[in-house]
Design a binder for these strands. Structure first.
Length: 878
DNA sequence: GCTTGCAAA
DNA sequence: GAGAGTTTGCAAGCT
């Protein structure tokens, strides 16, 4: 038996002419060096690349229209009449398109007397009958009649890579029709682009109305007596035209196609040929991408020594050191070995040797021998598990590269150094494999990988340092991020004590409540279903119970909280679902999720990602301790489980008050905002008073709430739409608010304008401490991309500068605790707050010291203000 | 692996 | 003619 027959195929059928047309009109007229226009081929290529990546087809074909006349012209000689002649700028591109498809090794096909539609219709029918999956891609909505349970039709929406996916369900939803009724719709309304006449005077609306009732053209005429007046007249008069139009719009599914699906197998492109054609067409950006994703390139030979003992004389001042870890969970994963590189030599030290070596330990712990590393925090924390305290870290490649450009991903050393033109090191995925196949390779491969990493760090260091200096970012890197890495490493290694018992008890209670709510929901719904499935929930709410569907997602009804909140009061079940969601989130994420992360020492050891966010903030994983609930009381109780690690100690939480708006006041130099902070006013009340033009004591709670939302919006890069959603008001009212706000704070208005202008000019924005974020889309002609970049230009300096401030405070706080000889420990950072644990006898000193240090970390033209509180658990620090 | 939904600042 | 507040991490369902 041939197994091959049982492997399901995925067949991609493309409408070549239609897509080339779309691409041609969607893109500006590009030309290559020889003056050949390339926009249609380029658009086609980008679409093809995207389809290949996303769909992973096993079989492919591009169908083209053949010649001028088809069987349809025999039935109606005006078919496709009145069409504009293909522009010569497009015609000249077809030969290139053909060559391009040859390079991809994709089958092309055309058939005399038939259109591409018919070829696609015929093959998709064959595929369906064989039980294969088909994706049809075109710019022509006619093709949607081919949709079925195994065929999806993709129609380009705008541009060429934005695609609308027509499934049977989507067509039903959009038109209330089955795919075959699309033909009836064309029969009634016609299609001007193909010159299909239809019934004059019947458009989409009328056609859909008629079909909803009579189902087909035939059905309409069988019940023609139902119609009256002008409508009846039009229909009766044009009955023949309607049937003819239906016939013209029907895709032939039994065309005499001479290829079989088995001949369409797609094996991937002929890379060399593809590169040749892309070069000819001058597709630079595609070539660059290809370069980047290229498989293992040839590497320079690297000589290295594997050490069986470590001689202290080999360990110099100014070497690259790398600790190889099996995965990113450096608080728990296996340590695989150490490698070293200097200008003279490269060494690999197997882990069993490294762990025993006193010479290595002494050198690593010496503050006076400089070490060059990448992700020094990971290595520091992992070595600490073996009792080794690294000191003298003088360079961190990952952090340096992150400061140069925070928008890139810094998950793998190979990717980092490649940014600087160095490609002599493999990615971890290449060496270890991924998913279920991941494993430690044989010693020789592992050792070479480690050796190459140390070598890469050593060799790339000067390039990164130079770049940092050029950008005037060396201080940000060297005086802020590098010292912070050490502080964060200590915090992570120390960990936070979690009361397992407390969590477990809350879990039991939550489960009990959830079961009760579940029963009530089932009773109200009249049946049991999975409440956690948005799909099933959507059916219950919007079909069974008939509630109005307010918003849709790509895949169905939206059941998001903001949608459900609008339905509260319409049905009792809504309230229960919201409650179920809220408690379910607490149980799964915060009770069960957190319990899984508790180590043997009874603590959680988060990892602070220091080279991840584009704004300069930290993030926290395994577990994420930066999103422990606080707003709602039920969730806030989770914080009762975060306790001091020593008996009798207390938790201390210190948070910056309105740090982002203070930063905004500083950067915008807005007089009114500065004045407000200098007088220590409640900023939301002050805003409300200005915007609503009432005195401070006349501000109502609703006014303050609105003002607060506007302030948030300002910080995040506001749009009237976003604000209207937030406050549940009309867009007009929101726009009005924003206008009044900006009029009240002209400095802010000026700042927002100038920051966007500056971004357009420089291509990046900066923070207080010269952190950069590049905004390549700021001058884009695409509204969405450009708007997003503009909001980013407004938001990043604010959010990023606030991040700069607290990072500075953390470094100084760490130094202050050391200097004062305190036993109190800094445990966590949550964007604008720091969490400590402290012995009771140090409490008085700490309550004074922490605000002092935090408030003086950075000098702004408004005061920084810190609120501090203590308690027996994190929950109680309020 | 993607989508939806939701927790935080 | 639609688009449409920032930055994250995690869990569940579904394909």
């Amino acid at each position: 038996m041939e197994r091959g027959n049982f492997v399901s195929k995925k067949i991609l059928l493309l409408d070549g002419n239609s897509l080339a047309y779309r691409a041609f009109f969607a893109l500006p007229l590009l030309t290559n060096d020889n003056g050949i226009h390339t926009n249609a081929v380029y658009g086609f290529t980008t679409m093809l690349q995207k389809l290949l990546e996303e769909e992973q087809p096993t079989h492919m074909m591009v169908a083209f229209d053949a010649g001028k006349t088809t069987f349809r012209n025999e039935a109606y000689k005006e078919y496709k009449g009145g069409r504009q002649k293909t522009p010569p700028e497009l015609s000249e591109q077809f030969p290139y398109l053909r060559k391009l498809l040859d390079a991809y090794q994709i089958k092309q096909y055309e058939l005399d007397n038939y259109e591409a539609d018919d070829i696609i219709g015929t093959l998709s029918l064959q595929a369906e009958q064989a039980g294969d999956q088909v994706v049809v891609v075109s710019g022509d909505k006619d093709l949607t009649q081919l949709a079925s349970n195994s065929t999806v039709v993709y129609i380009t929406r705008k541009g060429i890579t934005d695609i609308e996916k027509y499934t049977v369900g989507h067509i039903q939803e959009k038109y209330g029709l089955t795919p075959l009724q699309i033909i009836d719709m064309k029969g009634l309304m016609g299609d001007s682009s193909d010159n299909i006449p239809g019934v004059p005077g019947v458009g989409e609306k009328t056609a859909l109305k008629l079909l909803a009732k009579y189902h087909s053209v035939e059905g309409v005429y069988e019940a023609i007596e139902d119609q009256k007046g002008k409508m009846k007249e039009k229909l009766v008069e044009n009955e023949e035209l309607a049937y003819l139009s239906k016939k013209l719009a029907t895709i032939e599914r039994q065309a005499p196609v001479t290829v079989s699906i088995d001949e369409l197998g797609y094996e991937g492109p002929d890379q060399d040929e593809l590169v040749r054609i892309w070069n000819e067409l001058a597709f630079k950006s595609l070539l660059e991408k290809l370069d980047y994703t290229a498989e293992e390139t040839e590497k320079e030979d690297l000589h290295f020594d594997v050490l069986e003992t470590v001689d202290a004389s080999l360990l110099e001042d100014g070497m690259a050191v790398h600790l190889e870890l099996y995965d990113e969970h450096y608080h728990s994963c296996e340590l695989l070995g150490v490698s070293l590189a200097s200008d003279k030599a490269t060494y690999v030290i197997p882990m069993e040797v490294a762990a025993q070596s006193e010479a290595l330990r002494t050198w690593l712990e010496s503050g006076s021998t400089k070490k060059y590393m990448s992700d020094s925090k990971a290595a520091t924390a992992a070595f600490l598990r073996n009792g080794i305290k690294i000191d003298g870290v003088d360079f961190d490649l990952m952090l340096g590269a992150y400061i140069v450009n925070p928008s890139l991903k810094y998950t793998d050393l190979a990717d980092i150094v490649r940014e600087y033109g160095y490609s002599d090191v493999s990615t971890n995925e290449q060496v270890y494999g991924k998913g279920a196949k991941k494993k430690v390779p044989e010693a020789a491969i592992l050792q070479e990988h480690m050796a190459r990493k140390a070598r890469a760090i050593f060799n790339v260091r000067p390039v990164v340092v130079k770049k940092l200096e050029e950008n005037e970012q060396f201080d940000l890197y060297d005086k802020l991020e590098l010292p912070l890495a050490k502080v964060l490493g200590q915090m992570e290694s120390l960990g936070v004590k979690v009361d397992r018992q407390q969590l477990a008890e809350m879990g039991v209670e939550l489960k009990r409540k959830l079961e009760m709510i579940e029963q009530e929901i089932f009773a109200l719904a009249g049946q049991e279903f999975n409440i956690n499935s948005p799909k099933q929930l959507g059916v219950i709410l919007f079909e069974q119970l008939g509630l109005p569907a307010i918003k849709k997602t790509k895949t169905g009804y939206s059941t998001a909280a903001d949608v459900l909140e609008k339905l509260e009061g319409k049905h009792e079940i809504i309230h229960h679902i919201l409650m179920y969601r809220q408690l379910g989130k607490l149980l799964s994420t915060y009770i069960e999720g957190l319990l899984k992360e508790i180590h043997e020492d009874g603590k959680v050891h988060t990892r602070f990602q220091q080279a991840l966010t584009t704004t300069g903030r930290l993030s926290s994983t395994n577990p994420n301790l930066q999103n422990i609930p606080v707003r709602l009381e039920e969730g806030r109780k989770i914080r009762k489980a975060f306790v001091p690690s020593e008996p009798g100690w207390v938790m201390v939480a210190a948070d910056y008050s309105q740090i982002e708006l203070r930063v905004l006041a500083h950067m915008s130099k807005d007089e009114s905002l500065i004045e407000a902070f200098q007088s220590d006013l409640d900023i939301h009340t002050k805003t409300a008073s200005d915007v609503f033009n009432v005195s401070l004591d006349k501000v109502t709670s609703d006014m303050r709430r609105a003002a607060k939302a506007v302030n948030f919006g300002i910080v995040y890069g506001i749009s009237d739409y976003g604000l209207s959603q937030n406050l549940n008001i009309t867009r007009k009212e929101a726009a009005d608010f924003i206008e009044r706000y900006l009029a009240s704070f002209p400095g802010v208005q000026g700042y927002m304008t100038s920051i966007v202008d500056q971004a357009k000019k420089d291509g990046f924005v900066t923070t207080l401490m010269n952190r950069r974020r590049y905004l390549p889309d700021i001058n884009s002609s695409n509204f969405n991309l450009r708007s997003f970049a503009e909001r980013t230009a407004m938001n990043t300096p604010i959010q990023g500068s606030a991040a700069d401030v607290i990072k500075q405070a953390m470094i100084e706080m760490d130094a202050a605790l050391e200097r004062e000889g305190l036993k109190s420990k800094m445990l966590l950072q949550v964007h604008d707050e720091l969490i400590f644990e402290a012995p009771p006898e140090e409490l008085d000193r700490l309550m004074k010291l922490v605000p002092e240090v935090m408030e003086s970390a950075v000098e702004l033209n408004v005061p920084l203000k810190v609120d501090i509180a203590t308690g027996n658990t994190w929950y109680d620090t309020k």
